[in-house]
Amino acid sequence: MSEARPSTRQLLLLGLVQAVLFVVGAVLGRWLGLALGLDAFGPGGYSNNAIFGILLIGLGGGAGAQLARAWFTRRYGSPRS
């Protein structure tokens, strides 16, 4: 882990990895919701099942982005330095 500012290439890598893991996390959240019977895009409109399905998709996407950020910080240091 270096103490210098991350290079532009490293910050671009952070953005790319965050985007990919956000999508992967959201897809995993969708699959988990479907496995639990919480269909975010079901025909029932905004029922409780749909709301909790949407919540799982958001939590999965956010967790993926945070995982990418933690990986980057561990490898290159804080991107805010």
Rank of each mutant, 00 (worst) to 15 (best):
L32A: 03
L34V: 02
L32E: 01
V27T: 10
G15P: 02
G62S: 15
M1L: 10
S81H: 08
D39L: 04
G15R: 03
G29I: 03
G44P: 08
L59H: 03
G29A: 12
G15T: 01
W71D: 01
T73N: 11
G29F: 00
A50V: 00
L14C: 09
G44Q: 12
M1R: 10
R9A: 15
R5N: 09
Y76P: 05
G61W: 00
Q66L: 15
G53N: 05
P6G: 10
S2C: 04
S2N: 12
A63Q: 04
V20T: 10
N49G: 11
M1D: 05
G33E: 11
G15W: 00
T8F: 06
L16K: 05
A65G: 10
L38C: 05
R9H: 12
Q10Y: 08
A4S: 14
F41K: 12
R30F: 06
G44R: 02
I57R: 10
N49K: 11
L21I: 06
R30A: 07
I51L: 15
L34D: 08
W31T: 07
T73I: 14
L67D: 00
L56K: 09
P6K: 04
V17R: 13
Q10C: 11
I51E: 13
G62E: 09
L34G: 02
G62M: 14
G37N: 11
T73C: 04
